[in-house]
Design a protein around this nucleic acid. Sequence first.
DNA 1: CTTGACCCTGCCGCGACGTCAACGTCTCTA
DNA 2: TAGAGACGTTGACGTCGCGGCAGGGTCAAG
Lengths: 243, 243
Amino acid sequence: MRIGELAALVGVTTRTVRHYHHLGLLPEPTRLGNGYREYRLRDAVELARVRRLTELGLSLDEVRDVLADDRGRELREVLEELDADLARQQEAIGAQRDRLAALLAAGEPDPDAAVSPDLAAVLRGLPVAGSPSAALDRDMLALIDTGAAPAERAAFTALLQPLADPDIAARLPDLYARLDDLADADPTDPRVPVLATDLADCLPAELLAAMRDPRGRTWLDELSRELGPAQAAVFRHLSGGTP
Amino acid sequence: MRIGELAALVGVTTRTVRHYHHLGLLPEPTRLGNGYREYRLRDAVELARVRRLTELGLSLDEVRDVLADDRGRELREVLEELDADLARQQEAIGAQRDRLAALLAAGEPDPDAAVSPDLAAVLRGLPVAGSPSAALDRDMLALIDTGAAPAERAAFTALLQPLADPDIAARLPDLYARLDDLADADPTDPRVPVLATDLADCLPAELLAAMRDPRGRTWLDELSRELGPAQAAVFRHLSGGTP
DNA sequence: CTTGACCCTGCCGCGACGTCAACGTCTCTA
DNA sequence: TAGAGACGTTGACGTCGCGGCAGGGTCAAG
């Protein structure tokens, strides 16, 4: 038999056979005078064995190990491990499909705000138009949401829920506008403490508390980098006073 | 923000961020004087969006398409296709695990004779020791079995079943020995027609018939290549007479 | 003599990064 | 001020199981 025949017999390509030779999974057969490989039935049997193992999902390295490590006992371990691996994959795919189903069921899957649905609702209630600080806020909130574990995410959304209240939402555009006005101001600007007071008045107490704990401060630091000095000063006032 | 901070924020490696830049999934930010990339919060948001999409299972190419092809409608298609794909994978893995379970349940998983269990039983009943022709036969049968679809496989095994009958099995060693003796003989050797007759006497009629149909002849041709001329002649007698 | 069907070796490509290498830059500390 | 260690930069190779191609040689039939 020549290589094409062998390959057809077992149902692989000639490229595959040569690949197995290259990796040493299959011994190189004797050559004919013209350099062609000459196979015998036993080679086909060996090839078929390799194929069966790969089709079970073994990697070529694993196949080599199994073939080397004579018969049976190692194979059993590998197969069991493989099964466990497949079980994990099944589970992972199932979870993945659940997530997909949730997204698809939500009507319009918007990866832009592929934040948790509750947060999305809050964000929709916040004003954005034309205010850089408001846009920053949205970005920040989205980021916190995507990075958090589900449990934290729920707590976080709960913190923000009050902002969706119409009374509060109505006061936000003015506050954002005043924050925008401080973009190029000096941190000692007299408007800073006034705005901080008005903000503290408007925001829920729990949210203010969260801004004072270490995790909240980290995020505020992040946010402050993108703000002007006076704007950052406002948040320093909010999150703990003087420093 | 510099690249390490950005990466940590979103939960990827810096290598990943640079990879996305390279592919154009994420715009290159402005550089600092020292050549460092300087990121802003919006970059983190963009990166997080890419990440969410990849974590849903989209390829980076698909992510690029979705991001380019503004919002929503294309995404839905991709996600649905993805779900279908995952469903196929689930099914495939399930089938795979079934096969594994069958193998593992069979006690000792022997990939050597990972032929169908029925055939394995038949093969166990056949004599092998020291007979090259018998070994060839086993190889051949194993090969036919592994290449066949399940339905054909059953039919094929059924054909061979009679060989497991003790009366017949008892006569096989002698027949194999006589076939071995013809290894270097001339095709005109008088022992050839005699052995052919004795074999025909011993083998089930259905098997002889199968050897005469085109598929059977192909396999016999294959087998004959590994045999001596006189041995091949025996099978020519069996499978149709003169040619 | 050509055509077409085989065979040979050897190398690039895929996907989503990980992992060097070889180098520059910043910050802290002794 | 010097050195250490943690950052950053670009660039190239490795992964896995082959597919595909380039650039040849071989062989049988028309």
